[in-house]
Structure formats: structure tokens, C-alpha cells
Computed example of a mutant assay.
Amino acid sequence: LVVGSDISRCPNTPWPTCRGYLHKRTHSGFVKGWRKRWFVLKHDGCLHYYRHKKDEGKCSPLEVIKLEGAEVGIDSSLGKPFVFNCVPQSGNRTFCLCATSNQEMKRWLEAMDKAIHPVRQNHVWEDVTLHNSNLPPLAIKNPECLGLLHQLDRNTDMWVQHYCILKDGCLYFYASIRSTQASGGLYLQGYRVNEQILSFKQSVIELKPPSEEFKTFYFCAENNTENQRWITALKASIKKWLPLHQAIQDFMNRPLEETRM
């Protein structure tokens, strides 16, 4: 499944995210020394870096470093403070990085250490969705909505058609109604559903993520009536999944007689 939400990977213990400027030591090119780069540690445990902060989300990263299994530690051999090294498990390259303060260095080391040693948990709901993704579309029981949707590919500005099934906050994609299994899908917990008008004045369904770590998706049905049907169904399906703090608050706000065991 294509991940839309963090719950698909590790619902109870999300991997940390961390972002900020670090100086990266370089030995290539005409300029040797330290270059300031914008680093982003994402939920998937990969460290991305860009030339500038403004490039995040707009440009491809200069490099992506998978941290799981890597070695990270402070390097005092250069006589420069706040320097630490990262040696990925794959490859023999060492990334030498420098923070702006001891506090910043500790923040990065702690976040990277959690990405290096991820805690994985099995989740019964994930097993159910993976099971559903291996079924033909009409074999999924009690779908909340089904039909054709066109998804906007932001890289090509082209619309790609899917036959879609919505079930329990997960949107499954099929090449056609006759497909034997899903070609992909989105976990939509925490997403907000809005109706938007794009530049060509077409009404579309916008799925806005709970965090900037995830993508915004745009869909369009065959007509406005179908759009509204999907919007209503998506909102209802996502609403079933409450953040834990909200569920606790809702429980505490209920009348006393309803909360007694």
C-alpha cells in the first residue's frame, strides 16, 4: 500500500521527525570544507538533505540516507565542537555533520538513534487492510463508498483513473472493477477532506494530511454529485478514527452515569 498516514507503518510508536540546518563536511568539488544544508529526518527513518529550507517539498533532496542499522556518534578528532558522524549500514561512506550547539547536536543524535533502532509493533488493523488489498474490489465486505476516481499526479499534472473502494479509513485503488487485487491505497487517519477549485475551475476533492511529512492528494469523480458523495463518505470514514487524546476527552465529557462500568 502507498502510505498516506503514519499508522500503516507503526501506529503506536511513530518514528521521530527532526529538521533543521546542519553543516556537512565535503571533500569533493573545488570547495572543500563545510557546507550548510537543510536536513529533514522523516517518519520512514530516512534522512533527506537539501541546499536550502525552501527546497523541501519543492525539489528532490540532494541525497537520502537510510538510518536503520546505521552507526552514529560524536567525532572529536577534528578539534571542532558539535561534530558527529553517520555511517549508513549500506555502503562505506561516512557523513560528517556539525550542529550549531550542543543542544542541537543532542536533539539530532536522539532522533537519529530512534530511527536507527526502530520499535516495530504488529497492529491487527494493518493486517486487515493488507488482507483486503489482496482481494478483488467487490470482495471487500460493506464498503463505505465505491466507484471511479481520478487522482492528480502532481509530477505530470495528469489525472490517473482508479476504481476505488473506501473501507475503514483506507482508500484502495484498482486498475479496474475486474482487478484481482489492489494496485495501491492510502491510509487516511487524521486527513481533512475539503472541496477545492483548481486553476482550471474544476471542483476537486482535497485530502490534506495531519502533518507536512505526508502528501496532499487530489481526486475528482465523474461529476459534482459524485464528488459530494465521496466527500461525505470520506469524512464519515475518517471520523471513525479519533486521536487518543480526543477520545479520552470525549469520554471524560460524557455524563457520569454513562461512564460507569
Rank of each mutant, 00 (worst) to 15 (best):
Ser133Trp: 03
His131Lys: 13
Lys54Phe: 02
Ser77Met: 10
Lys208Pro: 00
Gln246Glu: 03
Arg107Asp: 14
Thr216His: 06
Asp113Phe: 01
Leu47Asp: 08
Leu97Met: 13
Leu67Tyr: 05
Leu152Ala: 09
Val119Leu: 11
Cys164Tyr: 06
Met158His: 11
Ser5Met: 04
Lys32Val: 13
Val83Gln: 02
Arg93Met: 12
Ile7His: 00
Tyr187Val: 02
Thr156Trp: 05
Asn155Gly: 15
His23Asp: 15
Arg37Trp: 01
Tyr172Arg: 01
Glu63Tyr: 03
Ser76Leu: 11
Ile140Phe: 03
Leu242Trp: 04
Leu166His: 04
Thr26His: 11
Ser28Trp: 13
Gln103Ile: 11
Ser179Ile: 07
Gln161Gly: 14
Ala236Gly: 06
His150Ser: 14
Asn155Val: 05
His52Ile: 10
Leu62Gln: 06
Asn134Ala: 09
Val64Asp: 00
Ser8Gln: 07
Thr216Lys: 07
Asn92Met: 15
Lys208Met: 12
Pro61Met: 11
Ser60Lys: 12
Gln202Arg: 13
Gly91Arg: 10
Ile140Ala: 04
Gln246Ser: 02
Ser60Met: 04
Asn194His: 04
Gly20Val: 00
Ser199Tyr: 01
Phe219Val: 15
Thr100Gln: 03
Cys170Asp: 12
Lys66Val: 02
Ser90Tyr: 14
Gly79Lys: 09
Asn224Glu: 15
Gly79Phe: 10
Leu135Ile: 06
Pro209Glu: 05
Pro11Val: 03
Gly20Pro: 01
Gly185Lys: 07
Pro210Arg: 03
Gln89Trp: 02
Ser60Pro: 12
Leu1Cys: 03
Asp153Tyr: 04
Gln151Cys: 13
Val31Gln: 15
Ile177Pro: 05
Val128Met: 14
His27Asp: 15
Met252His: 06
Ser76Trp: 08
Thr13Ile: 05
Val72Met: 14
Lys114Trp: 01
Ser28Asn: 11
Leu256Ser: 14
Asn134Trp: 03
Leu242Arg: 06
Glu71Pro: 07
Gly190Leu: 06
Met112Phe: 00
Gly79Gln: 04
Thr156Gln: 15
Lys167Ile: 07
Asn155Arg: 08
Glu71Asp: 13
Lys215Asn: 09
Leu135His: 08
Trp230Thr: 12
Val3Phe: 04
Gln249Asp: 05
Lys32Leu: 12
Val160Arg: 09
Thr129Val: 13
Trp15His: 09
Pro88Met: 06
Leu97Trp: 01
Leu256Trp: 11
Phe200Leu: 14
Gln196Thr: 13
Phe251Ile: 04
Leu67Ser: 04
Gln121Ala: 07
Ser211Cys: 01
Glu68Phe: 01
Gln196Tyr: 10
Trp15Leu: 14
Lys141Ser: 10
Ser90His: 13
Leu130Gly: 02
Gly69Ala: 05
Gly20Thr: 01
Pro16Phe: 02
Gly79Thr: 05
Arg260Trp: 12
Ser77Glu: 08
Val128His: 12
Ser203Leu: 15
Arg192Met: 10
Arg107Gln: 02
Cys170Trp: 08
Met261Trp: 03
His162Pro: 05
Leu242Ala: 11
Ala233Lys: 02
Leu135Trp: 02
His52Lys: 14
Pro14Asn: 03
Phe214Ser: 04
Asn224Tyr: 13
Gly184Met: 10
Thr180Asp: 05
Gln181Tyr: 07
Leu62Phe: 01
Pro143Phe: 11
Ile248Thr: 09
Arg107Phe: 00
Met252Val: 08
His131Gly: 11
Arg192Ala: 10
Gln103Val: 10
Lys58Tyr: 00
Arg254Glu: 15
Ile231Asp: 07
Lys240Ser: 08
